[in-house]
Each structure stands twice: as structure tokens, then as C-alpha cells.
């Protein structure tokens, strides 16, 4: 990550922060022990990052324990909290699965506006950069001009795309895209799908059918069902992840919009509760702005870490 993507993400955070570090510094100054006020500051910062009450209480409780045991003092709080967050996310990232016999089929699912179409394009671009032959499937046949949008991206990425007429059966697009991928010797086919709220039973049923059809078109497919999660989503993200997983067997997450001031802290809960790994992070609106998720760097950015002289900060 030579171009400091996480730095950019951090910069986004820094702009909006009444930064944790600043507040910690204020709370720490003049104190050696970990005060109740300092712990409250930490609690507030974690809550403000959408980490949610259960994970926040767990993390703060851990710090309280360490402090009570005489193993943590005020000046070590920031680094320790960062380490604890990173530790919570241990094992939460992995590379994408590949089919033994190509094509690998990747389905992008999620609620409306989470960034599926843009992520599909970025993913195609990233895989192409690895030397793979990639095909895009425009299976969002519902949103007006969704296929046009993906088509423009496909052109920019130099990738072929399979689409049908607006309003047609999205499962048919999946089938055709996978069949075309097999016929053309494509390595990975990335399918965009229409955004849907997880509490719409009929739309979730439609998605189940798409997954089934992918399997019919190619044994073992889909190899990845990635839930695209908007980084600015609040506690509802946990419900989204759970319901989508129950419905279509989500295999991992893409956390988007981390270049905004949102911090995406809810993935801590999603990882702990559901064990869903986070494969990718979206950090900008360009084709190249999709990166493998890095728990260490995410932990630093989540807490608004300031690179300068911060021990243990990983610039990715």
C-alpha cells in the first residue's frame, strides 16, 4: 500500500474527528492512573465510531481490568486500545477464494446505496491487475441505468460485461454471465446485484434464486457471496449481515466509503457475532480504491490515530 490508502482513509477521519487521541491526551494529562473519566472518554470514542454497546463495553472492560491489575497506565491507553481492537479483528481478513477449475463466481449483495456497482468495477480492476481474465455481470436489472453505470465502469476497467434489458430476470443475467465466462475461459466473473433491504422477504427470495442459478450454471458457484456494507451504517449493519447470511450464505464483507468521516466500527461486532471475514475495503471513488482489508491499519484509523510518532502504527 505504497500510496498510503490507509493514510487517506485516516485523513478522512482526521478531518471529522474530535479525535480520540486529542481527547485521550487531554484526559491523560497530569494523570498517571487510568481514571473513570478517561475510560468514559474511550467509551464515547468507540460508540462514536459505531462500534456498538456490547463491543465497546468489552473493550473498555478489558482496559479497566488491565488498569486494576496495575498493568496499564494512562499514557499507554491509546496504544493498548488500538492493540485490543486489532486483536479483536485477528483472522478477520483473507484473500478471495478461487475455484479449482475456473471460472470463480463472485456475487455482490447488499442494501441499496451501499456501493455494490462501484465495488464490482473496482474488484474487476483489482483482479485484472493480478493478471486474471475478468467478466462483469450486470444483474441489477431493477435500478434505472444501473447496467449503464456498470457498463461505463467496465469500459474504464477494460473488462467485458454481460447485461440484459432493464426489468428482466436477474437470475437469467447470472446464468448467462457464468455461461459466458465458462465459454470464454474467464478466470473470475463478478456479478453486481440490485440493492435490497434485508427486511423485504420477496427480494431476499429473488436473491436466493440468483445464488441457486449460479450453482446450476457452474458447479460450486458462487465461490464468494460478498456483502457490501456501507462504512457509515450504524447498528443495523449487524442485522443486515445476519439476515443476508441466513438468506444467501454470505462468505465475506466489503466495507465501503472508508474515505468518508465514517469509521465502520460495526464490523467489530459483525466479525465477533457472525465470524464474517472482511475481504476488501473501499477507500475512494477511483477504480484503484479497493484494498485488501488490513485489521492493524483499520484499528489505527478507527481510533483516529495520528501517524506522527505513534508507536505501533502501521501505515499499511
Amino acid at each position: 500500500m505504497a500510496d498510503g490508502v490507509w493514510g487517506r482513509m485516516r485523513a478522512g477521519l482526521a478531518r471529522a474527528r474530535q479525535g480520540l487521541l486529542g481527547r485521550i491526551a487531554a484526559a491523560v494529562s497530569g494523570h498517571r492512573t487510568v481514571s473513570a473519566g478517561l475510560l468514559e472518554e474511550l467509551e464515547g470514542a468507540l460508540l462514536a465510531a459505531d462500534v456498538g454497546m456490547p463491543e465497546t463495553m468489552r473493550l473498555v472492560g478489558r482496559l479497566r481490568e488491565l488498569a486494576a491489575a496495575g498493568e496499564l497506565f494512562a499514557e499507554g491507553v491509546a496504544a493498548t486500545l488500538r492493540a485490543e481492537v486489532a486483536r479483536s479483528l485477528e483472522g478477520s481478513s483473507r484473500p478471495m477464494r478461487r475455484a479449482e477449475t475456473p471460472p470463480s463466481v463472485v456475487l455482490l449483495v447488499g442494501v441499496n446505496g451501499s456501493g455494490k456497482t462501484t465495488t464490482a468495477a473496482k474488484l474487476a480492476h483489482a483482479l485484472r491487475g493480478e493478471g486474471q481474465r475478468v467478466l462483469l455481470g450486470a444483474a441489477d436489472t431493477f435500478r434505472a441505468a444501473a447496467a449503464e453505470q456498470l457498463g461505463i465502469w467496465a469500459e474504464r476497467a477494460g473488462v467485458d460485461m454481460v447485461r440484459h434489458a432493464a426489468g428482466s430476470d436477474p437470475s437469467a443475467v447470472i446464468y448467462d454471465a457464468v455461461a459466458a465466462a465458462r465459454a470464454r475461459g474467464v478466470d473470475t466473473v463478478v456479478c453486481d446485484t440490485a440493492g435490497r433491504l434485508h427486511n423485504k422477504a420477496n427480494l431476499m427470495a429473488e436473491l436466493r434464486k440468483m445464488v441457486r442459478v449460479a450453482g446450476n450454471a457452474c458447479p460450486g458457484a458462487p465461490h464468494e457471496v460478498l456483502l457490501v456494507l456501507d462504512g457509515s451504517t450504524g447498528q443495523n449493519a449487524l442485522v443486515q449481515a445476519k439476515v443476508f447470511t441466513e438468506a444467501v450464505g454470505v462468505t465475506g464483507l466489503v466495507l465501503t466509503k472508508l474515505d468518508t468521516s465514517a469509521r465502520g466500527g460495526i464490523v467489530l461486532a459483525v466479525w465477533r457475532e457472525l465470524g464474517l471475514p472482511i475481504l476488501w475495503a473501499g477507500v475512494g471513488e477511483g477504480l484503484e480504491d479497493l484494498r485488501p482489508f488490513d485489521p492493524e491499519a483499520f484499528a489505527s484509523a478507527l481510533l483516529g490515530a495520528d501517524g506522527a510518532g505513534e508507536p505501533g502504527y502501521a501505515e499499511g
Binding site: 460508540l47 465510531a49 459505531d50 442494501v111 457509515s232 451504517t233 468518508t260 468521516s261
Partner: peptide, 15 residues
């Protein structure tokens, strides 16, 4: 504004 927005909504609105 998305009804599913989290804590950052205050920064968005203020911004």
C-alpha cells in the same frame, strides 16, 4: 440522509 446511518450522521449533517 439514509435512515440506517450511524453515529457519523452528525458529522455529515454538520458538514
Amino acid at each position: 440522509l439514509d435512515a440506517m446511518a450511524g453515529q457519523d450522521a452528525v458529522n455529515v449533517a454538520r458538514g
